[in-house]
Amino acid sequence: METKSIDDAKAVVQAKAEGIAGQIGGALTNPALNDAPCTGKRGESGGDEVYFIQGGYQIALPAAEHVATAAKLRDQWKAAGWTITDDRTVGSAAILAATTPDEFRVDLESTVPPSALALLVYSPCYGRPA
């Protein structure tokens, strides 16, 4: 497991989010970056030493562009080697999720009302530096 300070890990998540915002052609708003302990498959906590970062954002985008934008991103992400884990259109709302080769997880979903896309970026687990 990679060791990284929380600030460095947040910077990595922020950079990943900015990359996606760049693909969409919008700006990140309402950022919320938080760290949380990683848990194992049986729910065992990694304690304070093992953590991940969750970055939440919104990207303003007219509702009419959501589905097409998600389709464009899906193709770009696939081409980059990302694994698509959810890809749905519900009415005019778009839902897209993927995992990256470097073990980030990314969620994109239309907001309510649909004037933006909600973006969530989850980092892999990191160990705190000693």
Binding site: A36, G43, Q54, R88, V90, G91, I95, V112, L120, Y122
Partner: peptide, 24 residues
């Protein structure tokens, strides 16, 4: 006891239902 793991489909669905976005 793991229904609330961040980024799980379980949590996302709870959020969608709570926000009244049942179709999602």
């Amino acid at each position: 006891t793991h229904y609330w793991e961040p980024n799980s489909e379980s949590v996302k669905n709870q959020g969608r239902i709570l926000a009244g976005q049942y179709s999602r």
